[in-house]
């Protein structure tokens, strides 16, 4: 039985599969190797006193810092605060962004009227709104949430609107020739054909949400990873700065991979 299975492929194809596997193994070992090497050199040079660990920190000090944050219970508190701000901001920016994009697709007049406003808000560096946000929303999580939404929503609107507008004109003509209403065109054609753009928008929006939440915490905050970084910088505790940055890397990568996973699930369910 097993022999028969192997027989299905030619010798050449088996060699091809083996080469492919070896190549992947090589790439992965280099990826991990670079990380180990960097941390190794970092640790070694600081341990030997060639560079000052007070200025550049070191892997062991970082893990020590993370461990002590974990012990006094503040690790999950700060991670939780930032994660909540980022996820909530992401969800609101995406949800509201898609809704507004739909409204702009629906009404040409509305789109024409609002176009200059969207262009200006898009061009404006959102951080300029910081003081206003603090005065209006206070210094708590609401202000940061507001900043996160502001940073993400315009991109979400523009991205989805251009996807909706790019819907195949001939397919719209076809549906209209069947007597389709605008709502039917939207539901049967515009929304399903914009699914790939929706996913690519999510990938961009994830990055925007992190920018928004960390930027918000830089401006005003009493908790969160952005707060730890700013606080650590002010009191010259590089261990804290590096630790928070490292955690941020892991979280941002994790969230991005969740979106990629969602993409795979959606594409699969759309195809089968």
């Amino acid at each position: 039985m097993k022999n028969e299975l192997v027989k299905k492929y030619s010798e050449e194809h088996l060699r091809f599969l083996k080469r492919r596997k070896n190549h992947l193994l090589f790439v992965w070992s280099l990826r991990i190797g670079i990380l180990v090497l960097l941390f190794g050199i970092w640790e070694l040079t600081t341990a030997l006193g060639w560079v000052d660990a007070f200025i550049v920190s070191s892997p062991s000090r970082i893990f020590g810092t993370i461990a002590s944050l974990y012990e006094d219970g503040s690790l999950f508190y700060h991670v939780g605060v930032t994660l909540w701000e980022t996820l909530a901001g992401f969800a609101i920016a995406v949800g509201l962004g898609v809704f507004i994009a739909l409204a702009l697709w629906w009404s040409n007049t509305l789109r024409e009227v609002l176009e200059p406003y969207i262009v200006v808000i898009n061009a404006l560096p959102k951080i300029a709104l910081g003081p206003m946000i603090i005065i209006w929303f206070g210094t708590g999580s609401e202000a940061i949430l507001c900043m996160t939404v502001l940073v993400g929503i315009i991109i979400a609107i523009l991205h989805m609107l251009s996807a909706f507008i790019a819907t195949d004109k001939n397919k719209i003509l076809l549906l209209r020739s069947m007597g389709a209403s605008k709502a039917q065109i939207l539901i049967k054609l515009v929304i399903p054909s914009s699914l790939p753009s929706f996913i690519s928008m999510l990938k961009v929006a994830v990055g925007m949400a992190w920018i928004g939440s960390i930027m918000g915490e830089y401006i005003v905050s009493r908790a969160g990873l952005g707060y730890l970084i700013v606080y650590g910088g002010q009191v010259f505790r590089l261990d804290l700065v590096m630790s928070a940055t490292l955690i941020l890397c892991v979280l941002a990568a994790g969230m991005y991979f969740l979106v990629v996973l969602l993409e795979k699930i959606l594409v699969k369910s759309a195809e089968h």
Partner: peptide
């Protein structure tokens, strides 16, 4: 009533052939 056929087939790639041919039924 009219049935319109265009230059390209304009089948919806995310629907099976069966689901494609019933689109006009859904619309009407």
């Amino acid at each position: 009533s009219c049935g319109y056929m265009l230059q390209k087939d304009e089948l919806f790639p995310w629907r099976t052939i069966e689901k494609n041919i019933v689109i006009p039924l859904e619309i009407k």
